[in-house]
Amino acid sequence: MGSKRLLVPAAVVGTLLLAGCSAETNAQWKRLGLPEGASDRTEAVRSLWIGAWIAALVVGVMVWGLILYAVVRYRRRNEEAPRQTRYNLPLEVLYTLAPFAIIGVLFFYTVENGNRITAMSDSPQHTINVVGQQWQWTFNYHETVNGEEGVWETGTLDQPAELWLPVNESVHFDLTSPDVIHSFWVPSFYFKLDVIPGRTNKLELTPTKTGTFAGKCAELCGLYHSRMVFTVKVVTADEYQAHLRDLADRGQTGAATGGQDATTIPGHGEGEK
């Protein structure tokens, strides 16, 4: 009787909590914590993420069920020792094959979706060199603007950088660093990649929604790591080109110094390309 009395208030509280959630929060619950996607890599990452949770839940339910079954079925009833079973071949085969089957399925879908996430095209519409340095970001746009080759913009601790991207147009990113390891992460793009000194890491994606999105460094990179943030503005193609012309009018042409030195490890000469 006591447990039944507790169930009613618990159900009421749970209903009120769910009813109090906003539509945005409810949608995020359906995505299992993922933010709303804004790039063409969204579906592959979401599929892998939700699929892994479903697999984990299925395995968890099976394990919990077996534990509860063993607790109830073989609970101690008297002082006599229970009948001992030395071997149980079917169970041993199950315990051996089941993990291999689970790992095999997860491996297959990880590779399949991983290939979709990291896919590159032969001719992306735009190329941007992203430079992560202590402790801000520099963006070198490889575009011809007002007859000049390339424009750039950078940020400071007090004024974080802005990265402008055209919606529905593919963008290739070259990630470089002149100092320590950073990590380029835009949560809404469902993509994160390390920025390593002496090495150029690459990624490609297509923004699919206009708007302003948060970006950050996801690798502990020193004293002001927490302030190494930036803003991504996904705009129309015309607005994107207008922004590049504005950068050129300010004299921010060519490539920023960080971009030129970012493939060299300080103190070690030329780095690995």
Rank of each mutant, 00 (worst) to 15 (best):
W53Y: 14
A256H: 08
H126P: 07
L163Q: 08
P124W: 03
G259E: 03
N78W: 01
K209E: 12
A218I: 02
A237E: 02
H126K: 11
V72E: 09
W135N: 11
M228F: 02
I128A: 08
R245F: 02
L203N: 09
T118N: 10
F100G: 09
L91T: 12
T96N: 11
S121P: 05
G271S: 06
G211K: 14
R75Y: 12
A19S: 08
F213I: 05
V167H: 05
R250C: 09
D246G: 13
L57E: 00
L106G: 05
G155D: 01
G114M: 03
L247D: 00
N129P: 00
K273L: 01
E162T: 14
P266L: 13
E79H: 10
A237D: 00
E112H: 12
N168C: 00
V145H: 05
Q28M: 15
L16W: 04
G222S: 09
H182W: 10
L175S: 05
L57G: 08
E219I: 00
H243K: 13
L16K: 10
L7M: 14
K216M: 06
R227H: 11
G215A: 01
C217I: 13
T118W: 07
G211W: 08
A52M: 08
A218K: 09
V145M: 07
W135C: 11
H126C: 03
A248L: 06
F108G: 01
W53N: 06
A101C: 10
